[in-house]
Design a protein around this nucleic acid. Structure first.
Length: 256
DNA sequence: ATGGCGCGCGCAGCGCGA
């Protein structure tokens, strides 16, 4: 089973990239973030024509998440239970014995801002939910744009980014708290090339110079993490015309 | 040098992303 996550920064603009990518990377599940469209303009027909089921939670202009899958999904949930949030950032569904949680974590804008406070509260609600809701016997994968670079090795210039949003102590502690709950960062369970990133600024030729951050992640609980055989970042779509600023992350699992 | 680019909205230029 292959599960991928990709912040596509407008599904309307990036739909051709998504369909092309699925053609050459026929993953079982693709989690999308930043759809930037309402549910009534979701391109369901095009995605179904490509052989995928789709569930989604969109809104106008901002945010929006979707799960695409080869097999039909069950028990689709939106949001973090008990956490009031107008912003469409979470969608979850089950496939076989696997629970997939797709996140678009708030960006936070800048340390100390209102949006940063919202990010930390949001992450606290996420931690409580992931810690309380799921049983360890389940196979759980949590994917998405976490908007957190967990460690300095995930940052092209740790000095420039030190204590900045995406890299600040409280954000990294929130990420580590998920690890403490038993969720493993699958990318770091395998040998990786140095300077591996999943996002590059559109400005200043950041991609060409590989000035990036690793902020898109695939986490799995212990039960499911041991079934993971690989976790990689596919930088190819970032080289296309009018690319998303994020690259897809893909994990492969052995199913019993 | 706090911009740079790309998106949505909407028709100019701003808010936002990361």
């Amino acid at each position: 089973m292959k599960i991928a996550t990709w912040n596509i920064n407008s599904l309307r603009v990036r739909l051709p990239h998504v369909l092309d990518w699925l053609k050459s990377n026929p993953v079982d599940v693709l989690a999308l973030q930043e759809l930037k469209l309402t549910d009534d303009s979701f391109p369901r027909a095009e995605i179904e024509a490509a052989g995928y089921h789709a569930v989604f939670s969109g809104q106008k202009t901002y945010n929006g998440v979707a799960l695409l899958s080869r097999e039909p999904m069950r028990d689709v949930d939106m949001g973090i239970p008990g956490f009031k949030d107008e912003q469409r950032r979470v969608i979850s569904a089950s496939l076989g014995n696997v629970r997939v949680v797709n996140l678009y974590v708030p960006n936070g804008q800048s340390v100390g801002s209102d949006k940063y406070q919202y990010k930390l509260i949001w992450l606290e609600a996420l931690r409580n939910w992931l810690g309380e809701t799921f049983r360890h016997s389940e196979q759980i994968v949590v994917v998405g744009d976490f908007n957190i670079a967990p460690a300095d090795e995930d940052v092209h210039d740790p000095l420039v980014w030190k204590d900045q949003v995406l890299c600040s102590g409280p954000e990294r502690e929130a990420f580590r708290a998920l690890t403490t709950l038993g969720y493993r960062d699958l990318f770091r369970r395998f040998e990786q090339a140095p300077q591996s990133y999943s996002w590059w600024d559109y400005r200043a030729a950041a991609f060409r110079r590989n000035l990036g951050l690793r902020i898109d992640h695939i986490l799995a609980n212990a039960t499911f993490a041991q079934a993971c055989g690989s976790c990689t970042i596919d930088v190819a779509p970032r080289k296309l015309e009018r690319p998303s600023d994020h690259a897809p992350v893909i994990a492969e699992f052995r199913l019993d």
